[in-house]
Amino acid sequence: MGSIINAQQIINGLQLGSIYALIALGYTMVYGIVRLINFAHGDFYMIGAYAAYGAFFLFNAVLGGAGGPMAVATLLFAMLAGLSIAALTNRFAYRPLRYKPKLSSLITAIGVSMFIEYVFSATPFIGASFRAFPAIIPQSLFKIGSATVSNYVVIDLAVAGTLMIGLTVLVKWTKLGKAMRAVSQDKDAARLMGIDIEKVISATFMIGGAFAGAAGLLAGMTYPRIFPYMGILPGLKAFIAAVLGGIGNIPGAMLGAYIMGLAETFASAYNSLLGEGIAFAILILVLLVRPRGLLGEKTADKI
């Protein structure tokens, strides 16, 4: 066994981190705006993967042949699926509970998560078993120094990077972004300023869902097997990444996700038990040492 920290591991870690980042952003944005840990967010990611799977075969049958444009269409389809399920969940499960105690929303979120997973696994054409994910784009390998890099690494990093830049632009410079920031600061004041807060919340869920959908496609392609429960662990880890970065903080979620991706890759290389448990160890450490996360702001309760 060579050194655990080498170029190969760093590349693998960044690749995993990109996927976590896309999921973590949804968690952090939703938490920032409605203070809800959306347990079902990992399932949006799973739905994205299944949507991409279905879309690929559909497009293939209708249009024939793989290629760049079709991959983009598949990506858009996965994002649309994530977006729709997020919007539906928000509308029918979370919105009615907006002004009830916070724990009811949290428990509902657990229920929604279970519901989506088991509906998928009970649906005859999906089923509980693993499915091999098709190569939407043919894989090719090349070498950078001693490390072997697949074109998937480039795609994962590029897609995640583009989406993250897009999100940053949206949040910083558009009217919707401003409204999102306003609602996350103070819902009542935002409402008095004439902001339709339900619209903003819904938009936030949709953006988060679309990102999770994209992550589902990337994960399906990179680790080519999908199953109805595939969202649970990545969802949890992405959430932990968001907590690590400072929940509610968008750059924090990205930073946390990449740290998590790297940490998990290194830990798994060292020992598989450690790889499985590192995320929770990070979580407990963060919450005990710096509960507001790396980039989070300090908040004080008014007494």
Binding site: L97, T108, G111, V112, M114, Y118, V119, S121
Partner: peptide, 24 residues
């Protein structure tokens, strides 16, 4: 010949959501 066993959990999940929505 369908995997209906998992519907049990679907019913549980729905139950949980409905309790929260209508009888917190």
């Amino acid at each position: 010949n369908l995997p209906l066993g998992d519907l049990r959990m679907v019913i549980y999940a729905l139950l949980l959501i409905l309790i929260m929505l209508f009888r917190t």
